[in-house]
Write a protein that binds this DNA or RNA. Structure first.
Ligand code: SF4
Ligand code: SF4
Lengths: 137, 137
DNA sequence: TGTTAATTCTACCTTTAAGTAGTAATTAAA
DNA sequence: TTTAATTACTACTTAAAGGTAGAATTAACA
């Protein structure tokens, strides 16, 4: 019951980039060192984020990364989608699948409530919302 | 954001055993075949459940398994604990850990709500509650 | 135009979860 | 007392996540 490392890293990376959106470009070394993420793993994640157009990359000397959209337009859910970590409507806590609308266990309705809250939280929280505030996340 | 296979299997196994609590003993072959769980993996899980005293095992010919407590006294949370799959109080969705009570991100308060609901659901739902009802889970 | 600092690509290594195989131990029935 | 049916144990294999290494590519700048 937790997000994957990749998702967690990606959220922290993008939140950090939101904080520093004044600086035109941020490079991988800075991100890795500041956020304590293994450099090589970080670059892999960055490449993923570039591919889905959340981040823009400038290669070569003086290159680096920057957000491709306004931070208020990037939702946490968008990030989770990249790493297949978001909560699907049909997804069950118990992960079973032998059941349907007519035939459901007693946890079904109880699960709906936290599930909807989580989906809403991921869908409606933007980077702008979670970034900065003087705290290092 | 999902329970491990072991937890999911264990829940289904114990729910099935609750349904059949009239029959004195249920053996591994029946469980594996009925619930479509790989036999060898199932026996490993059963051994875990026996070790934590949720299930009692009778070895030898005509042996099998039975619940060691009343099904209304076995909570889903007890099962998740066995496989380290329950939600700790301090556990964060983002899994970060650079933050504390004074310094928290905007998701923090939103996460509290579904977290408490999930914890409550796992803590207060017994096998009795989720089992049977004519459905095969 | 060559050097250098940066991202990107390809391939590999490590760790953990998931699943399998074979055998020993146990016990009731034949 | 043998045999068959059962769980328990030890060790291995496979698949997926997490992480690493090194070379290729790109572009500023001297
Ligand atoms: S009925 Fe129960 S097992 Fe089925 S999807 Fe709903 S919560 Fe999951
Ligand atoms: S402040 Fe944010 S990152 Fe920290 S524990 Fe709370 S939800 Fe997680």
């Amino acid at each position: 019951m937790q997000l994957s490392n990749s998702s967690q890293y990606a959220i922290r990376i993008l939140a950090y980039m939101t904080d520093k959106k004044d600086s035109p470009l941020i490079n991988a070394t800075e991100l890795a060192e500041t956020l304590f993420i293994p450099y090589k793993f970080l670059t892999k994640i960055m490449t993923d984020l570039v591919k889905v157009d959340l981040v823009e990359s400038i290669r070569g000397r003086e290159g680096g990364f920057k957000l491709k959209k306004k931070s208020s337009d990037i939702m946490v859910g968008d990030i989770l989608d990249v790493f297949n970590d978001s909560i699907k409507d049909e997804q069950c806590v118990l992960g079973i699948g032998f059941c349907n609308g007519l035939c459901k266990c007693a946890l079904h309705d109880q699960w709906m409530e936290p599930k909807l809250l989580l989906q809403k939280m991921f869908r409606e929280s933007s980077l702008e919302d979670i970034a900065g505030r003087g705290c290092k996340i």
